[in-house]
Design a binder for these strands. Structure first.
Length: 200
DNA sequence: ATACCGATTAACT
DNA sequence: GTTAATCGGTATA
């Protein structure tokens, strides 16, 4: 079942980051469908969060996407090489977002292998935000795609499905976000969530 | 027009 | 544990 608009437009970004664990992030790029179960996320709490690109209400051509309605894809280029995928949450003008940091490959593994130029998938293949986007064929030029409206478009579609995976709160590990040392006190916030399910 | 830097990764020692 | 790769975004002038 496709996650609805109302899932994304809620106001508690850390709750949404938790609830995205166990959901399936899917893409259809040039007709090639790939999906992975989300196992790691980070919440970015908008204008009050020093780690967020939108801290202090900063609006630039890049961050403008985060000010859209929840359910929009915010994707940007990091270190000149990696596309990092986020889903925008909350209502329009409130620039909250959740970074997807890890997936377990579920569908289209053959396509994923072709994308990374490898023969087999390993434990690490879907770990790390750069690898997530690479496996799923997500490019930063897709920023602004709508995770509900794009469904069905064979060229560039990105969406998230609920496939009924139940995540016990005890299976979720919480901690500080990765790579945000520049954020001062906000670097210590427990906004990172990792799903340690069976076999993970 | 120019300078600095990053929500990372892979390949090293 | 360390480091090179790599370039668009952003601030400053």
């Amino acid at each position: 079942m496709l996650l609805s608009r109302s899932f994304y437009t809620r106001s508690d970004v850390t709750l949404i980051a938790r609830e995205l664990l166990g959901k399936y992030l899917c893409t259809s790029i040039d007709g090639l469908v790939t999906c992975g179960m989300i196992c790691e996320t980070e919440a970015y709490a908008g204008v009050t969060d020093r780690a967020s690109h939108a801290f202090g209400g900063r609006r630039t051509p890049r961050t403008e996407t985060m000010f859209r309605e929840g359910g929009t894809a915010y994707i940007y280029l990091c270190y000149g090489i990696h596309s990092l995928f986020n889903v925008v949450t909350n209502r329009a003008e409130i620039p909250h977002a959740v970074l997807i940091r890890g997936i377990v490959p579920a569908e289209g593994t053959k396509i994923m292998l072709r994308r990374i130029g490898s023969k087999t998938l390993s434990e690490n293949s879907g770990t790390g935000p750069g690898r997530v986007a690479r496996l799923l064929g997500i490019h930063y030029s897709f920023s602004g795609l709508d995770l509900i409206e794009s469904f069905g478009d064979p060229r560039h579609a990105v969406w998230i499905e609920d496939r009924g995976i139940l995540v016990d709160p005890g299976q979720i590990q919480t901690g500080p976000r990765i790579g945000v040392g520049y954020a001062g006190e906000d670097a210590l916030l427990p906004y990172r969530f990792v799903f340690h399910g069976k076999g993970l």
